[in-house]
Simulated scan of single mutants.
Amino acid sequence: MGKNLKGKELGKNIIQRKDGRYQGRYIDRFGKRKSVYGETLNDVRKLLRDKEYENSRNLNSSDETITVDQWYSVWRDTFKVNKCRNTTLESYDRIFRLKISPEIGNMKMIKVLPIHLQRIINKADAKGTRELIRAVLTNLFKYAVASEVVAKNPALNLDIRRIDDEDSEATFLTDDEIQIIMKYSENSCIKNIYRLILQTGMRIGEVTGLTWDNIDYEKNVIHVVQQLVTTKDPKTKKWVLEVHKPKSKAGIRDIPMTKETKEILRELREDKDVIKFPKNSEFVFATRNNTPQYRASISKLSDRIRDKIRQDYPDFKNFSPHSFRHTFATKMIAAGVKPKVLQKIIGHNQIQTTMDLYCHVYDDQIYEAMDTFENMA
């Protein structure tokens, strides 16, 4: 039994120190001896009750000193290396280094609260950046809970929405907008990339990774079996192009060719030499210097086309090569194609992804729906 400075018994595992403060000792569920301190006896008794509750509910941490930076390294090397693609790992590293670590890297894991993480989300402008930050944080703390580094996951209810997101999602292009884009990209190599995506709904990496042996004229389909990705060589630290399989099993698919698709391919085949990359594999799209198309270069070129358009149309909406995939899918839905069929064509794993991303409604569809309703009366 511990005693105070006057010799009065205070109870089990509680003493009064020479400086007048009270100290309580306990053993946590990991077998470690710990202490709590308070200005009054009641303070220490309450702290001990709290620790006893945490022990009984498995709410305490196995390591209360580990920081977010330190845990990220553990999480990355233990749970992610060899379990996801290098490109995915690079995106995790980049978003952590630029957005997360500067804000909470030195904080102890057990001290991180939802408000700290929400502030990181709020500082990111692009919706895609906010989504990636949330994904990394949620998974980072998920494994921290499983490893008993923290008791709860503070990233579970992060809100990435913004009042201006509705405008940023307006990547569907109208026929008039497409016509303008094609006009301003007339002398650019990106025009045929736009055209092919608009006819097939392929991802930009799938288009740049397309080879002539993927074009099956006999069956009248494009075999989507690979994509071209940019990744950093771990030895040289230089960016290199690699051929990977599509994002998922659903990404491996056959897309029937339209007349326009075959015309685009005919023009490409006749008008330019094709590059051998890798050996014995002819890529459909290549630069004027006969080198592979980097996704970053295509994005920059698309931005220049947009800026050129805005000189004449200042309010022209933002767009990217992905906007043409978005437009393809939306037009398919508007044409009456069933979502399950569209899911197969564009290579989504989950039907809900297809529904959430591409099932837009045209203004004229609203009027048609009301006319149908009125005629039923």
Results as ranks from 00 to 15, higher is better:
202 M>P: 10
134 R>I: 04
366 I>D: 13
340 K>M: 08
72 Y>P: 00
187 N>F: 09
226 Q>P: 01
62 S>A: 10
16 Q>K: 07
86 N>M: 13
310 R>Q: 11
111 K>F: 00
293 Q>T: 06
33 R>C: 01
157 N>K: 15
47 L>S: 03
37 Y>K: 07
119 R>N: 14
354 T>G: 07
18 K>H: 01
142 K>F: 12
170 A>H: 10
135 A>N: 10
353 T>N: 09
69 D>V: 07
320 S>P: 05
48 L>F: 10
225 V>S: 12
277 F>M: 08
125 D>Q: 12
11 G>Y: 02
62 S>F: 00
83 K>A: 10
149 V>R: 00
176 D>K: 14
159 D>K: 04
39 E>T: 15
21 R>T: 14
14 I>D: 07
269 R>M: 04
150 V>T: 06
344 K>R: 14
173 L>G: 01
202 M>F: 11
79 F>D: 05
192 N>K: 12
115 I>E: 14
272 K>G: 06
318 N>H: 15
10 L>V: 01
98 L>D: 13
309 I>W: 12
340 K>F: 10
131 E>N: 11
235 K>Q: 06
172 F>I: 15
366 I>K: 15
368 E>F: 03
236 T>W: 06
373 F>W: 07
219 K>R: 15
86 N>L: 12
181 I>S: 05
274 V>L: 03
323 S>V: 03
116 H>P: 08
54 E>M: 03
15 I>N: 04
288 R>S: 12
106 N>P: 00
286 A>V: 12
310 R>E: 04
38 G>R: 11
220 N>R: 14
127 K>N: 11
366 I>N: 12
144 A>N: 02
102 P>S: 00
90 E>I: 01
87 T>M: 07
79 F>H: 13
259 K>L: 13
181 I>R: 03
270 E>P: 00
335 A>Y: 08
239 W>T: 08
180 I>V: 11
210 L>E: 02
138 T>I: 12
92 Y>L: 02
2 G>T: 05
184 Y>H: 11
173 L>M: 11
356 D>I: 01
367 Y>I: 15
31 G>T: 01
5 L>Q: 05
313 Y>T: 06
299 S>Y: 14
230 T>E: 15
371 D>M: 04
242 E>D: 13
154 P>Q: 03
238 K>S: 11
231 T>L: 04
28 D>C: 02
134 R>W: 01
205 G>V: 09
103 E>H: 09
330 T>G: 06
144 A>P: 08
50 D>V: 10
7 G>T: 03
99 K>I: 02
29 R>S: 09
2 G>L: 09
284 V>M: 08
220 N>E: 15
10 L>N: 09
59 L>Y: 05
277 F>P: 01
212 W>G: 13
335 A>K: 08
6 K>W: 01
241 L>R: 10
206 E>N: 07
68 V>E: 04
7 G>D: 02
290 N>G: 11
99 K>A: 07
217 Y>G: 10
85 R>C: 01
289 N>D: 12
255 I>K: 06
100 I>L: 07
119 R>M: 11
149 V>T: 00
363 D>V: 14
306 R>I: 12
135 A>D: 06
203 R>I: 14
119 R>I: 04
278 P>H: 09
61 S>M: 00
219 K>F: 07
347 G>A: 05
22 Y>Q: 04
255 I>L: 14
